[in-house]
Design a protein around this nucleic acid. Structure first.
Length: 330
DNA sequence: GCGACAG
DNA sequence: ATCTTGTCGC
């Protein structure tokens, strides 16, 4: 049951005034409701508290490997992309494993359903790691996107976490404005008031529950990160770990994964980048000037860990868990 | 027409 | 996600 790509869809009287999501306009209501049901089904398996000993340790003793995943895209191409998985040692944050793979995306991007577009390929990378280098399986995975900070409380970090049974943390670069959360003047003021790296404030959903934390990931970072629980870790431990993984605004595991996937695309497509058929719609003009002065790279404090004893919490990607690696959408 | 829009 | 130019830091 594959959806037509956006450009093949004739005007179908989208009731979204301005066709909020061009991709969403190509998605059948049947598929969207199927995806919602799948999210609801898997959401029941999310564990939003610490399950591993190292997560409670002030120095994260026992944590040796932190993973990061990312998907980068080919310029004018709506289907070709590269998925990457990296594993870094902790606390050194040196790459001990890296795998990148060119993939063909099938599902379009629809806000709220990012996992159905990217997770299948990330799952495949985790499965490959389990087969070839099980000893390098990360003890926690940092995901580029949200966890429970999501339209239905089940973002990509939850999705990947449940299907791999690995602790996962959602790290988003922009606030997803759901459940009453708004990137308004008050929110911006709170951001401005964060002074040092490690400062944060809670993101309270409409029902009063904490959906995540806005975090100033290092001293000179202007824009915050939005951290939320994916699976098998508490929000407190998640925020603390993200801090310890940030040499710059973006945590190293995610940053390295991003670099690897881009580099892989550059090599796979050869250096001359241009010939790419423009099949998507024209870009919408940006009316507002970008008023933020950029990032600044710089050495920043990191949490220090006193090494760690041997591996305790071993990831169990065996047996019953492996069936979770089956792809779940269609 | 306007605003929102993880990646 | 991607494009864009310049600027700053190492």
């Amino acid at each position: 049951m594959r959806e037509s790509p956006p450009e093949m869809t004739c005007g179908r009287g989208a009731r979204d005034g301005a066709m909020a999501q061009e991709a969403a306009g190509s998605m059948s209501e049947e598929t969207l409701s199927l995806w919602k049901r799948e999210q609801a089904r898997l959401k029941a398996r999310v564990v939003d508290r610490d399950t591993e000993a190292w997560q409670r340790d002030p120095a994260f003793s026992g944590l040796r490997r932190v993973g990061g995943v990312d998907v980068s895209f080919v310029k004018g191409d709506s289907v070709r992309a590269c998925a990457s998985l990296v594993v870094l040692s902790y606390p050194e944050l040196e790459v001990v494993y890296e795998e990148s793979r060119m993939v063909s995306l099938t599902a379009p991007y629809v806000s709220g359903f990012l996992a159905f577009r990217e997770v299948p390929f990330l799952l495949e990378l985790v499965r490959q790691l389990q087969e070839k280098e099980p000893d390098l399986m990360p003890q926690v995975l940092l995901v580029d996107g949200n966890g429970v900070l999501h339209h239905r409380g089940f973002g990509m970090a939850c999705h990947l976490g449940v299907l791999t049974d690995l602790p996962c943390i959602g790290v988003a670069k922009k606030l997803l404005q759901v459940d009453g959360l708004e990137n308004n003047a008050l929110h911006k003021e709170k951001i401005r008031l964060m002074r040092a790296g490690g400062d944060s404030f809670p993101l309270l959903g409409g029902s009063g529950t904490v959906l995540g934390m806005a975090l100033k990931s290092h001293n000179r970072s202007t824009r915050p990160l939005y951290v939320s629980v994916g699976h098998k870790i508490s929000l407190e431990a998640a925020v603390r770990l993200i801090c310890c993984c940030c040499k710059s605004r973006i945590p190293e595991p995610v940053r390295k994964a991003d670099f690897c996937s881009r580099e892989h695309i550059r090599k796979a497509l050869g250096h001359p980048g241009p010939p790419a058929p423009r099949s998507l719609k024209a870009q919408r003009p940006k009316a507002c000037p970008r008023g933020d002065s950029g990032e600044s790279a710089g050495q920043v404090r990191r949490c220090v860990s006193t090494g760690g004893r041997g591996g305790l919490a071993r990831m169990h990607l065996h047996g019953a868990t492996c069936q979770n690696l089956t792809l779940h959408y269609g």
